[in-house]
Design a binder for these strands. Structure first.
Lengths: 259, 259
DNA sequence: AACCGATGGTTCAAATAATGAACCGCACCT
DNA sequence: AGGTGCGGTTCATTATTTGAACCATCGGTT
């Protein structure tokens, strides 16, 4: 493990529920030597990736990450494009929507939108890190990922988030096959109970799935008619997002519902 | 210079007009050994900070920067808050507006908004890296920065972007003093000719200026009345932004126009 | 006021990782 | 065919990273 990788891995301990981390905490979390963490964080700080609070000297993510994100958005806009698409999709379906990107062995949610239509809704936080196997977004990505990548994900221990989570690799593989039939993934309560989630993959310029667009609704509201609405809207929105970011679906991707 | 710093410095060669860089180009730009660049970029790629294009294998910024930005936004929202404020400020003034953050010896623009009111307007790109001494945003930040930081900026060679750019440190220091009188900076043609730019500093929780909010207008349109409008709107918007991000202006910051 | 257990920060010999000149195969030009 | 530039690789040399132990300081407890 190179020094750079080690330093950058420290950034992964930041999370929505842990936005600030002190030196000692970070040392424990990372199982590194305190002096090492101190020096690495010093370098990350000098580069603007983290900054230190005045009072407790805890580290938090720095302004450089905003700059780099703005820079990436300037050449390959995903966030700005998806914001509008999420908004429309939420309005159309009346439910909570979100986009995620696959990154290593995790799926990271980037942005979300709510609908004001219903008082009860699925609530979300941006920048959540979730699993592939338990989420509709993750499964949608896996269904169109390299077989060897799927192998690497499914060969790790799979966490059972709820008692409905699929954790048997064979069952998951057959689920992926089903998803490829329709081009659309859905999970019922496999990440959070009472949540019925639908997702379509988002493709990059190289025809590979880079992320997913999803609609999450309370299971109680999910009638057959509502599912049809969501599926149709999601297909359209997914195609639009893939297109707007300069991506292209693979040739075998179903254009509409498989019969 | 540590290995981590070296690796992270490679990211600084990405710019709006250079979103993709090949290995050889990056080697030349950075004056490092090709093998070193190759290995460092490999580590950055494994961490998701950069990704490689399929065809020419050129590097571009990766999805991890979006994740980290979303993460920072979740705890300290600046982008999302400033977007609304920029929108309103553009509508109110009829001109182009933008926010920037000071970072090291440079000022980086994060986001901007246009007004549809006039056919001619100042155009901008996000994620531009500009100088402190030639921009109203940079001067607004400097006016409320640590004296020793000001020294470090003004002791470097100062580029003359136009023949109106202030490059004499003493002149700049007296300009900073003027800015502190009113709490508002303005430059006329010092970064780009024919552009009249106004800016107010944005403060963090520690009372230090972390960035600036600015209005840029064609000089031809800048009447005294229009300046009054802009100054008043900018003051209000700056105070709102500082407040919304949990920041606080220093005690001596002028609340309204100095008499 | 002495103690305790934290915290952030520092040291320096030993261990390890980074470095760079040269090289390879390849594609695209003349 | 020969030249040029590209991404990628090798390996002995070199310089950096590492980590156990240490220090100063803070806040709570006895």
């Amino acid at each position: 493990m190179g020094t750079v990788t080690k330093a950058l891995s420290l950034l992964n301990y930041f999370a929505p529920d842990r936005p600030e981390i002190g030196l000692s905490d970070l040392t424990r979390l990372s199982n590194m030597n305190k002096a090492t963490v101190y020096r690495l964080m010093g370098e990350l700080q000098a580069a603007g990736f983290v900054e230190q609070g005045e009072g407790d000297r805890a580290y938090r993510l720095g302004p450089q990450v905003l700059h780099l994100a703005a820079l990436r958005e300037a050449s390959t806009p995903i966030l700005s494009v998806s914001r509008r698409i999420l908004r429309e999709l939420s309005d159309e379906t009346g439910e909570t929507t979100h986009v995620s990107l696959g990154h290593g062995s995790w799926v990271q949610t980037l942005s979300h939108a709510y609908s004001p239509r219903h008082a009860t809704k699925v609530t979300m936080e941006d920048a959540q890190t979730v699993t592939y196997h338990a989420t509709s977004s993750g499964l949608a990505i896996l269904a169109y990922a390299d077989p060897q990548f799927v192998d690497s994900i499914l060969s790790q221990p799979l966490k059972s988030h709820t008692n409905l989570t699929l954790v048997d690799p064979d069952l998951i593989r057959s689920k992926l096959e089903q998803i490829r039939q329709t081009g659309l993934a859905d999970t019922l309560g496999s990440f959070e109970l009472e949540v019925h989630s639908h997702a379509v993959p988002i493709f990059g310029a190289d025809h590979r799935a880079i992320g997913a667009l999803a609609v999450a609704a309370p299971a109680a509201r999910m009638t057959a008619a509502q599912q049809d609405t969501i599926r149709a809207a999601l297909r359209r929105a997914g195609a639009a997002l893939t297109h707007r970011i300069g991506g292209r679906a693979p040739a075998d991707y179903p254009q509409s519902a498989a019969s």
